[in-house]
Simulated scan of single mutants.
Amino acid sequence: MQLFHHKLINLRITWLFSDPKPSPRPPKSSSTKKSINFPTPIHANSPHFASVYFVRSQLPMSKMKKLTGSFRYTQWDPCLITCQIVSMQSVCYLSLCVLVAIMEDLTSSTRTLDHIFEYHEIHVRDGEGRSVISAFVLNAIIAAVALWFIVGRTKLCLDFSCTYYGIHLIACWMYNGSFPTTFSWWTLNVACAAITCVSGEFLCLRTELQAIPLSNIGAKVDL
């Protein structure tokens, strides 16, 4: 009886100090955690990079504009620029001839091309010279309206204004046979070029701002 009692005590001691087996963990359910597959970056040395570059190079210009997010068609077009220059020169010289003819009728002077291309006709000594100056100033405003209709770009107003008056300088140089040296001619043409450029930029800028529908945006915008 005592031997049985000692064996029972030894079994209890062994059970107390022995390491219990770890309980098996429940299997992970696929609904608790989802794996996120990040896209693998394409390196320049990988064969996929060459194929992507080839596909992009074969896209037409209309789709390339959508990819780059450009606002306007910015490709250099010499035919379009030449047509715009010719149109500007034709409209401005036609309006200048009409205005000079009206001023000549008002001052009862002879109609001649000297009032347009002659250096010494630009003066303020009499009514005939002042009428020619008035015709040039009014023509500068008409040239600004022509810039608005023909060019329609704020960034190009300075270029086309300088082109118009630069061609006028060459025409006067060829008409007179000498380079202009009178102060009144240079003052008038520089002032008219400034009026044309500033007025044209103002008109084109108003049109470009109207193309942005800011009124459709709500009062509250999440930033």
Rank of each mutant, 00 (worst) to 15 (best):
L3E: 09
Y165W: 11
A135F: 07
F183G: 01
T112K: 08
P39W: 03
T40C: 10
R206T: 14
S31C: 01
R130C: 10
F4K: 13
D77A: 10
I212P: 01
Y53T: 07
S184M: 12
P22T: 02
E128K: 08
S62G: 04
V190S: 02
Y119A: 03
S57H: 11
V137H: 01
Y164I: 01
R111A: 03
K33T: 14
M103K: 04
S184P: 04
R125C: 09
V145F: 01
R25S: 10
T82I: 10
F183T: 14
V198F: 11
A146F: 03
K7W: 06
I142T: 12
W185N: 08
I167N: 02
R153Y: 05
L223M: 11
W15I: 04
M1F: 06
G200F: 00
S178F: 12
H6W: 00
Y53A: 15
C79V: 14
F136N: 07
R153S: 15
N176L: 00
S18K: 06
P39N: 00
W76D: 05
T82L: 14
A194I: 09
A219C: 12
D159W: 11
I102L: 14
I133R: 00
M88V: 05
Y175M: 00
E201N: 13
F49R: 11
C162H: 08
I13P: 02
F202N: 08
C97W: 08
Q84V: 03
Q75V: 12
V98K: 03
V190T: 12
L138T: 06
T187W: 04
S57E: 13
V151L: 11
K7G: 08
D114I: 00
V91D: 03
D222T: 14
L203Q: 00
E208S: 13
E121C: 09
L147P: 04
M88I: 05
C83S: 12
A144G: 15
T40P: 05
L96S: 12
L138F: 09
G129R: 06
H48S: 04
T14K: 14
L16S: 07
S23I: 02
H168W: 09
F54G: 11
I13Y: 05
W186G: 07
M1V: 02
T40V: 12
F71T: 15
K34T: 01
I102A: 15
V221D: 04
S108I: 01
I85P: 02
D19H: 11
I133Y: 02
S29A: 05
L67V: 09
I167Y: 06
S18A: 13
G152P: 03
V221L: 07
I212D: 11
V198K: 05
F179Y: 09
C83P: 01
T68A: 06
S46T: 02
Q89R: 09
A135M: 06
Q58W: 03
H120T: 08
V52L: 11
S35D: 10
V190I: 15
V132D: 03
C92A: 13
L80E: 15
L80K: 15
S215C: 00
I141C: 15
A44Q: 05
L223A: 00
W185D: 05
V86A: 14
L138S: 13
R12W: 04
C157A: 15
Y53V: 12
T182R: 05
I212Y: 12
N10L: 14
G200A: 02
G200R: 07
P26D: 08
